[in-house]
Amino acid sequence: MNIIVCIKQIINSIINQESNNKRYGLNPFDEYALEESLKVKDMLKAKIIVITMGTPDAEFILRYSISKGVDEAILLTDNAFKGSDTLATAYTLFKAIKLINNYNLILCGKQSPNGNTGFVGPELAEMLNIPHITCVKRIKSINNTVVIVDRLLDIGSEVLESKLPVLLTITKGDNISRLVSVKGRILARKASIKIWDMKFLNMESNRTGSLGSNTHISKKDENNKQKNKEIFTGNASSIAVKIVDKLLENKII
């Protein structure tokens, strides 16, 4: 069984107040995806490859994955990848997976907190011409031909069986991340990370990065402006009079 897990680095702005450093970390949904892949490896003979497209410092999340039990890690990095929208991201991952060319199962996170689209997984599946299932809480069972999963729906939940290969996007289930062993830590330090650039992937520059993107961000605002906030304090019955005035004013009642 060959499993590929796509992971993404995110910036936690839990800023260290002294150094003002941004902290890099792994998308929490990818942490769940990683754990699901490791659970499969616990059950049967499997090889797990993680790939990420990102800046060179994304090496950190790759080594972290190896410390948890992943076998191989690939970093897709090139200045030309910068500014990729979801389709350009998916296409770059697709080219890398085509090179690996040997997979039964692909796992992605359900979404990632900064772009928050959740599009990359289904897009990648379409490019690879394999089925996909989003919002999977757990892999219930798997063999060399089929996988059975629990997936969330807006209206409830469902147990689905899919033929392999399939791409799953993983959400939180009981996939709490395992602890790193001492051996894992050593392996992670020693592991060699494959680094692939655009040329290696044999890509046209108009299919990745901002050049290869069909969507363009033109303006970004952070909206923290306080609406005319009002504070009510004091005696309960006088508060009630004032707030009911507001309810009427806003045609709420």
Binding site: L87, G118, F119, E123, A125, E126, H132, T134, C135, T215
Partner: peptide
């Protein structure tokens, strides 16, 4: 969940621009 599952799949096939 359904919209977010099928829209990107369609976008990838026809190379559309997709916005979330």
């Amino acid at each position: 969940l359904i919209g977010k599952s099928i829209a990107p799949r369609i976008a990838a096939n026809i190379e559309a621009g997709i916005i979330s």
